[in-house]
Nucleic acid binder design. Structure first.
Lengths: 329, 329
DNA sequence: TTGTAAGCGTTATCAT
DNA sequence: ATGATAACGCTTACAA
């Protein structure tokens, strides 16, 4: 197999522990003679030695690794969020193990199992299978395992959500100011949790006195296309739409256009998430921005707080959203 | 720390080895009495036992893990490719450790180091820092370490490239058939390796007798926007463009439009990669498709072939490309 | 300054 | 059918 500390010890005629000492120069307490040090270092280098993560993890009980569970990478929201979280974790000296479930609940459990077996020190969940009653939820709760559920709001574990209300208020106000009297909301169908976006939408419409309609939509782009197509043909369709994600907004717009509508002339469309890709779409997407980079940083900070102090109480972090006006509405 | 096999042994009054036997029911050779089995299983379940990956890896010398190095996830090409590779690996019983370098050569080496320390059994490289002369290149070569370099063509290690020629030929022929007499190619600037796309483009233009121009472009979307903007204002610009990636094509189109051009009327644009997202762009992107899903599967198969037989000679796999006609050209 | 030995959680090889 | 023990690669007391 790979080169070990024992190989180095043998080759340089010293004990394993001496090699270990040299290789972890940190041990300032005990010193090593310059001669041995140089010798060992040379041998280690010549042999292409690389410490074994598993051996170290086993004996230290630490992995400096976080787990991240997501359904897939299709949507730019997810891939940008994953990237943001990886970068943030890296900056704090942690690695991230990404696990994709392909939206299969069974696989989701396998992913969690695998992360736990690898002894990740904390878990970030972008999917929502973990909820009260669920075996893992109870486990995390009981063990005070550092986990953060994104876009959920249970109180036994830490969560990070976005206050959509402000964003939706701004969005509806913006549409009203542009003369729209009715707004449609394309929501994600079959959400197992409370649909905060939906609620925020309804409240915003009520507050601003504009008529509200909602349309259900699946999670694939094809669903989005079909919904756009259906809305375009509907008898009395609204003149503006808010879609639950930038990704889905592109699908919906595709469907709308297939029916000959122009954006934003015939239909104003506002997305949600604030993905980078929304900015180069045509027309550039007006969107309810959740601040992906900031969110990624905040969630990593949050989980690391728990990692560093397992007795810390769970936190429910709520981040603001704001309307980012571009050209699609 | 976590529950161990020893805890279970103690709690159920049997030896560690018995517990291990029960937990790895595979050991058909030696049997365990039904009573002990049930007892141990119950205790393990009650205690929420989870085997330690590190301990197993240490003891077996296997991790069933592949490493994957990429610059970032910004471009849909990368995120779709990473997803495809993860899914393919998963299907073959391997996990993928993703490591992002943020295009920083120094970090790239750290990523490799980290993957090697974790004893991944093979590495997939989407970036191109590993090349002859490079310390890691020599290491991989010498150790016959299972590694696949994507879009590079050295012969000491396995590589996977795409035969762009067919795709470019089709693309140029398509443009010519639509009446374009000159075609521009937006290439990635400062490629440290031979630029195959560039070469294929030049050949295709020569073959089809159309005038060729090339434009250099950085890797960020902003670079793409600026190049589009510059091309739009150029005195005698071509009427059609091929861009080195779908992602960058969206940036270029953005710039073109800022100058008032319509796509494809004022400028036909062909992207490259065949990303899913290109299909919902507006207008849907005509693109030179590399077949991301198939590529992901092929590359995982390739690296696993090497994993299973370290003495296997490196392979240079070349996959076909084809033109996917949509609406942008 | 350096060596010896125990232990981290598993599995595998012997015994019993 | 089950138990004891060594080994995997490393770190860390403790001795020398």
């Amino acid at each position: 197999m790979a080169v070990t500390i024992t190989d180095i010890a043998r080759r340089s005629g010293v004990a394993k522990s001496t090699v270990s000492r040299v290789l972890n120069r940190k041990t300032t307490a005990v010193a090593v003679s310059d001669t041995t040090r140089r010798l060992v270092e040379k041998v280690a280098h010549d042999l292409n030695y690389r410490p074994s993560f598993s051996a170290r993890a086993l004996n230290s009980g630490k992995t400096r690794t976080l787990g991240l569970v997501c359904g897939d990478f299709q949507s730019p929201y997810v891939s940008e969020m994953v990237a943001a979280e990886m970068v943030a974790a890296e900056a704090r000296g942690y690695h991230v193990l990404v696990s994709v479930t392909q939206w299969n609940p069974e696989k989701e459990l396998q992913c969690l199992e695998m992360l736990l077996e690898r002894r990740v020190e904390g878990i970030l969940m972008l999917t929502d299978v973990v909820r009260p009653g669920n075996e893992y939820y109870e486990y995390f709760k009981k063990e005070r395992f550092p986990v953060v559920l994104q876009e959920c709001d249970y109180s036994d574990v830490s969560t990070l959500t976005h206050d959509c209300q402000a964003g939706f208020d701004e969005a509806v106000a913006h549409l009203k100011a542009r003369g729209h009297r009715g707004v449609g909301f394309v929501r994600q169908e079959a959400k197992p949790t409370r649909d905060y976006k939906m609620i925020a939408f309804a409240q915003a419409c009520q507050k601003h006195q504009v008529a509200a309609v909602t349309y259900d939509c699946g999670v694939t782009l094809d669903c989005g296309k079909e919904v756009g197509w259906r809305i375009a043909r509907a008898a009395n369709r609204p003149s503006a739409l808010i879609v639950y994600s930038d990704y889905m907004a592109t699908g919906v717009i595709y469907g709308l256009r297939k029916q000959g509508l122009s954006i934003p002339e015939d239909m104003a469309v506002i997305g949600m998430d604030g993905t980078q890709l929304g900015g180069v779409y045509y027309p550039p997407l007006t969107t309810i921005d959740v601040g992906i980079t900031a969110t990624g940083g905040a969630i990593v900070d949050l989980v690391l707080r728990q990692v560093e102090d397992r007795n810390r109480a769970p936190e429910q972090l709520v981040l603001p959203t704001r309307l980012l006006v571009r050209e699609s509405a």
